[in-house]
Design a protein around this nucleic acid. Structure first.
Length: 151
DNA sequence: GCCAACGTTGGC
DNA sequence: GCCAACGTTGGC
């Protein structure tokens, strides 16, 4: 079992999109950063993923989802209508990947960025470091447990 | 809306 | 391979 965190703008995809359809899987596409993509390629079925709401009024960790399908070519990169289209990516040499995710739980409250910054277990985690833009972040079990203890 | 920090691109 | 220019992220 591995642990991860993924950032999302709740206008695009929020924990409520998962919570309102807990039996459905949601394709997590649109990741266009190589480091984040490589982390996605390391995900396994059943891995836990914290959902983090960014660029919004209430920034922080809002719940947990799990991986139901490991990395596969992100179809939006070939979709001319998609804002995520990448004309340099070819179907026989795909550049970007998606994973499928399913709801696990929504926290009773948001664990805010301010709180996360105060957790000593997270001091070295990119999430709380200034200027970090990584949208898929691996978490150790210690880091993960420190967050669940705050819920 | 601002802007610092960052990743990517492309000319050389 | 270097690095300036550019576009994007994301907190404030």
């Amino acid at each position: 079992m591995q642990y991860w965190l993924m950032k999302t703008e709740p206008d695009e995809c929020s924990i409520d999109d998962f919570a309102t359809k807990p039996d459905q899987v949601i394709r997590w596409d649109g990741v266009r950063n190589y480091q984040a993509r490589n982390f996605m390629r390391n995900m396994a079925i059943g891995d836990e993923v914290f959902i983090y709401h960014s660029s919004c009024a209430k920034i922080g960790i809002v719940g947990v989802v799990r991986v139901t399908r490991t990395a596969y070519p992100d179809p939006t990169q070939f979709d001319a209508e998609s804002p995520y289209v990448d004309k340099r990516s070819k179907p026989d040499n795909s550049r970007w990947d998606a994973v499928d995710l399913q709801f696990v739980r929504k926290f009773a409250r948001i664990i805010s960025l301010d709180e996360l910054k105060k957790l000593t277990e997270l001091t070295d985690n990119p999430l709380v470091q200034k200027g970090n833009r990584l949208s898929v972040i691996p978490f150790s079990k210690v880091e993960r447990d420190s967050i669940l203890a705050k819920v």
